[in-house]
Simulated assay, not measured.
Amino acid sequence: MTKTILTVDDSPSIRRMVRMTLQDAGYDVIEGVDGQDGLEKATATRVDAVIVDQNMPRLDGIGMIRALRQHPNGQGVPVVVLSTESEDNLKQQARQAGALGWMVKPFTQDKLLAVIRKVVGP
């Protein structure tokens, strides 16, 4: 069964790069344009993992993770932050909110796939 990954980023070019990388590896991809849109999609549909940016309008990544963890569909879903930010304080907040990991942009396709395979399998 194909795994479904939700990618949430306000940058269309980042969403496109993540989508193409994941689809080429055989994953289904759903896209969210900001944290609120991502939260709505993550709670309406069961996804196997979420990749979320930190700095977005309407709801930032950490806020989205916190809200997702409060919803039944968000329990146990692996979340990885993909952001230009790299401060330890933000990483700690993300972990406390329920993120499994943090990747810094720009990213390589190999690294992104390695992280996703680690959290959801091939």
Rank of each mutant, 00 (worst) to 15 (best):
6 L>K: 11
81 V>A: 03
5 I>A: 07
24 D>H: 06
62 I>N: 02
42 A>R: 04
2 T>P: 13
6 L>N: 02
54 Q>Y: 13
75 Q>I: 11
49 A>M: 02
24 D>A: 05
83 S>E: 08
56 M>G: 00
62 I>K: 11
54 Q>W: 14
60 D>V: 03
97 A>H: 01
108 T>E: 07
55 N>L: 08
95 R>A: 14
53 D>A: 05
31 E>M: 08
80 V>D: 00
30 I>W: 13
63 G>R: 05
53 D>W: 03
81 V>E: 00
51 I>N: 02
53 D>Q: 02
13 S>E: 10
21 T>N: 10
5 I>S: 07
88 D>S: 03
85 E>P: 12
53 D>Y: 07
46 R>P: 00
37 D>Q: 11
63 G>V: 00
113 L>F: 12
46 R>W: 05
106 P>K: 14
108 T>K: 00
56 M>F: 12
112 L>E: 00
115 V>S: 01
2 T>V: 13
105 K>Q: 15
41 K>G: 02
74 G>F: 12
23 Q>G: 05
93 Q>N: 10
108 T>N: 07
88 D>Q: 11
31 E>H: 06
65 I>C: 08
112 L>M: 08
28 D>T: 09
117 R>N: 14
94 A>Q: 06
8 V>G: 09
5 I>W: 14
90 L>A: 02
24 D>W: 08
116 I>Y: 01
29 V>I: 13
8 V>R: 02
95 R>I: 08
65 I>N: 00
87 E>V: 04
79 V>T: 03
17 M>Y: 04
100 L>Q: 13
94 A>N: 02
75 Q>T: 13
15 R>H: 11
70 Q>W: 03
87 E>C: 01
47 V>A: 12
99 A>Y: 03
14 I>H: 10
112 L>T: 03
1 M>H: 11
77 V>E: 06
6 L>V: 03
78 P>W: 10
53 D>N: 09
103 M>A: 15
26 G>S: 08
56 M>E: 05
74 G>I: 15
46 R>Y: 09
76 G>C: 12
60 D>Q: 09
46 R>I: 09
41 K>S: 09
52 V>H: 00
25 A>P: 06
49 A>K: 01
42 A>F: 05
116 I>Q: 00
40 E>T: 11
85 E>S: 09
82 L>Q: 01
13 S>M: 15
73 N>Q: 11
31 E>Q: 15
38 G>R: 01
26 G>H: 10
117 R>T: 05
87 E>K: 04
108 T>C: 03
51 I>G: 05
90 L>M: 13
113 L>A: 07
23 Q>C: 13
79 V>F: 02
80 V>K: 11
62 I>S: 10
34 D>E: 14
31 E>V: 15
31 E>S: 10
63 G>A: 09
77 V>D: 04
52 V>E: 00
117 R>Y: 11
112 L>W: 06
56 M>H: 02
103 M>I: 05
44 A>T: 11
11 S>G: 14
102 W>A: 00
50 V>W: 04
51 I>H: 00
39 L>C: 05
103 M>P: 02
85 E>W: 04
45 T>Q: 02
24 D>S: 06
104 V>M: 07
43 T>K: 03
75 Q>E: 15
75 Q>M: 10
110 D>F: 06
23 Q>D: 05
1 M>W: 05
22 L>E: 03
77 V>C: 09
